[in-house]
Simulated scan of single mutants.
Amino acid sequence: MERRNVLRAAVVGAGSVAFGFTMTRPSFAYPAQTGTGPYGALQAADANGVRLPAGFTSRVVARSSQTVPGTSYTWHSAPDGGACFADGTGWVYTSNSEINPGGGASALRFNASGTVTGAYRILSNTRTNCAGGATPWQTWLSCEEVDRGYVYETYPLGGTAAVQRAAMGRFKHEAAACDPDRGVIYLTEDVSDGAFYRFRPTTWGDLSSGTLQVLTESGGALAWATVPDPDGSPTATRNQVANTKRFNGGEGCHYADDVCFFTTKGDNRVWAYHAADNTLHIAYDDALTANPPLTGVDNITGSGSGDLFVAEDGGNLEICIITPDDVVAPFLRLSGHGSSEITGPAFNPAGDRLYFSSQRGTSGSSSAGVTFEVTGPFRGA
């Protein structure tokens, strides 16, 4: 039996882990299979080294160690996870800095026409800020990817100092995704035997207190169990609860329509946690996909059309699209960035501009990161 079929048989027999589910976002044949994406083939690289489908264009909006054009602010090194926030008639794009020490996060402010009108720091003096997540109340959760790291709540629109949110647990944080329907925030953990968490604030919208829980599996049934000591010392949070379900290197996290999609880099998977019926599904697995275009899965975001956009750390430096009808295909590819990774994909509020970064640019140095904008006829915009 071929390896792909062996793995398929193993996953089908894995209790509550399954391949299909009914939800607002249509799905017919999970896991996603290689096909032609809705935007067609990639064209030759443009002047910025970005290969895009016809009708799309790119521009560079910031470079690490250089002043952001139109401002006096020097853009941070190693740009990583990001998100967009409405700001009057314009918007703000946040970006983490995955360096240690220093870390933190910065923001770019755009007016209604897409011109950069400001750039500034929103978090300082932290460590290895990798991914995170946006909240419905317009804050950015910046996560430290270090042992016993913290989540920091930052304020992209300005006027309020960042706050450390210790109640959300101390572990090797990666990403966060808010589920307003259940009043919880899902959290991924970037270790090879990591857990999948949710934080339930005492009051939705106030992250100063609450309960940290971990996903468990026993006899094929999933459940949420409270982590006794969110501080994670002396016992790591992932090792405090019996039957904790393990995930191989948790990465990006995105919530939409009762489903939390999250990625694991150790096995190149995109998972779909269906919150309404507490089941877990495999939305993509490179071992279960013929000629898989997506490897090195990392950050993930979604568009208004239900498409998922997954960035690669490795592979051939692409952002791949996974459509609601379960087709996976390249959406863009960077040329000449072989020693980098793609980070921070996020759409502006209108859904017609996609931001992302090459963390180490063409030189492979964290001081050479490049932050891009792609504009074009995105579905659902």
Rank of each mutant, 00 (worst) to 15 (best):
T115G: 07
L108T: 10
G232A: 11
Q213V: 04
R170D: 06
D190R: 06
V184I: 09
F171Q: 14
S208G: 15
C178V: 15
T226F: 08
P201S: 11
E144C: 02
T188C: 06
A236F: 12
A221H: 14
W204T: 13
L215C: 09
G103P: 01
M168G: 13
G132I: 03
A105N: 00
S209A: 15
T139C: 04
G114C: 02
G159E: 06
T126P: 00
G104D: 00
D190H: 08
P180T: 11
G169W: 11
T216V: 11
V163R: 14
R127V: 12
G158T: 01
L123V: 09
C143N: 10
A112Y: 02
Y197V: 04
Y155L: 03
P230E: 04
D193K: 09
P136Q: 13
I122K: 12
A177R: 02
T188A: 03
A105G: 00
G205K: 10
A105R: 00
S106Y: 10
V151P: 09
E217I: 09
L212N: 05
T211R: 12
L123I: 08
P234R: 12
A161F: 00
G158M: 02
E189Y: 03
R148F: 13
L187Q: 04
A223I: 03
L212F: 04
D181G: 13
W204I: 01
E145W: 01
N239E: 14
L187K: 01
A167C: 12
T211I: 15
A236M: 11
W140Q: 05
A166N: 11
T154A: 10
R127C: 13
L108F: 08
S218L: 10
W140L: 06
T226C: 09
Y197H: 08
A107T: 03
R238N: 14
N129P: 02
A176K: 06
L222H: 04
Y186C: 11
S113P: 03
D231K: 11
P234Q: 14
C178I: 13
P136A: 08
D181T: 15
T237G: 09
G159H: 01
A176W: 03
S124M: 01
A131W: 03
G183C: 10
S113C: 02
G149R: 06
T154Y: 02
C130K: 01
P230H: 07
A107L: 02
L215A: 09
A166P: 07
L222I: 09
S192Q: 14
T203N: 13
T202N: 15
A166L: 13
F110R: 02
A225M: 05
R200A: 15
A177C: 06
F199C: 11
Y155I: 01
P101K: 13
S113K: 00
A223W: 04
P230V: 01
G210T: 05
G103F: 01
E145R: 03
T226L: 07
Y186D: 05
